[in-house]
Nucleic acid binder design. Structure first.
Lengths: 213, 213
DNA sequence: GTCTATACTCCGATAGAC
DNA sequence: GTCTATCGGAGTATAGAC
């Protein structure tokens, strides 16, 4: 076969297959040859639809950004509730596709869904009365926290092996090997605790800012 | 030359050279051949000192963790001040070696300096009266925030090109192309704002926890 | 026990035939 | 728009020199 009657590939099909592969086996498993094999074509065929492998990964990343709900910024919720719900939705999207997070963490760049996300959050904060500079900071600091929470599981970063943490070296890590087991619950709780603290702290700053006007 | 009188390599020299290479040209620039060339040696020689390339990167990461000051947990500062100073020191270390952050973000694993860091922070929170579960959450959420802030610059994630952000698509991103320019200042300010909010919020939780005792 | 030489497999990407 | 052939370079295993 040289040129089929109907195209075998489409950008959508490539992105979907790539996302499934990333989810199942990680970023490192995505080689052009491997991805092409999953699609039933030869490696270089991908280059008819994307200029580089990185473009494919960017498209996968953006398809994950597109899953974040933004409706909370439109229905008159107060800024704090909206920010909370947005953060949870954002985090859930990343948690469902943790392997692509390193690509997302590079920033929005030119990815449309990521830009819509930044635009909506920033716009809502300005709308709620935050001065532009503070609204920028809020966008940044929420991103730090959410990306950080998705990038590396805290609990999963410890080894599931008691002998790895000698009490003589690390007097307080006696239970650390248990963290790996309860990973999900611990990360979930830490995320909620951090988000609550962050929003409580921001509410304090908001009062000060509003009194100055 | 087959076997030199004096060893040309040492683990320290490899780690130092690798760190310099990572800092100067990024993670992707570190191949065993390239690193060996910098050391004046052939590629496979590295495998006499490290079992894999990944072990070298882990060692580089840990040498950065070792730069984080931990003295604030020992001199009787209150938990909030100590946590603040620790976060700043932590972030500064990462900011000085941003290219290695993806490796650090995988978690402490078996890296001694990273474990000392987790141990010190967790121990200090328990010492200050936080219940163990909350102390774990604090360790996690601080890590989220600090790693997130170091991993991808928020401001640097935007493209330095006004035409990339069409107002019709992103009504609130009119100035976004300017962010890349002022990267450092914006990231610095967002980090401080977030850290203050986080600590304010935690102080609120602390009061509640202490009242229950 | 530390190095060099060599080789194997896989990678991203390009050129050109159909 | 797909194929095959091919390139340079990656990680790393192994054999052997000294």
């Amino acid at each position: 076969m040289a040129r089929p009657r109907k195209p075998l590939l489409s950008t959508d099909r490539i992105v979907e297959t790539a996302r499934a592969l990333v989810d199942a086996e990680g970023l490192a498993a995505v080689s052009t040859r491997r991805l092409a094999a999953e699609l039933g074509v030869s490696g270089p065929s991908l280059y008819n639809h994307f200029r580089t492998k990185d473009e494919i990964l960017e498209a996968v990343a953006d398809s994950v950004s597109a899953q974040v709900d933004l409706s909370m910024f439109e229905d008159g919720r107060d800024w704090r509730t909206a920010l909370h719900d947005w953060a949870v939705s954002y985090r859930n999207a990343l948690r469902d596709h943790p392997n692509i997070v390193p690509v997302l963490a590079r920033g929005p760049g030119r990815r449309p869904a990521a830009l819509r996300l930044a635009d909506a959050a920033y716009g809502a904060m300005v709308e709620a009365g935050w001065p532009p500079a503070q609204a920028t900071s809020i966008g940044a600091l929420m991103r730090y926290f959410i990306m950080g929470s998705a990038l590396g599981s805290f609990a999963g970063g410890f080894v599931d092996d008691a002998s790895a943490y000698d009490p003589a070296d690390y007097p307080h890590l006696g239970q650390a090997h248990l963290l790996a087991e309860q990973q999900e619950k611990i990360d979930e709780r830490a995320f909620e605790a951090g988000l609550t603290a962050l929003l409580d702290g921001l509410a304090l700053q908001y009062e000060q800012v509003r009194q100055q006007v």
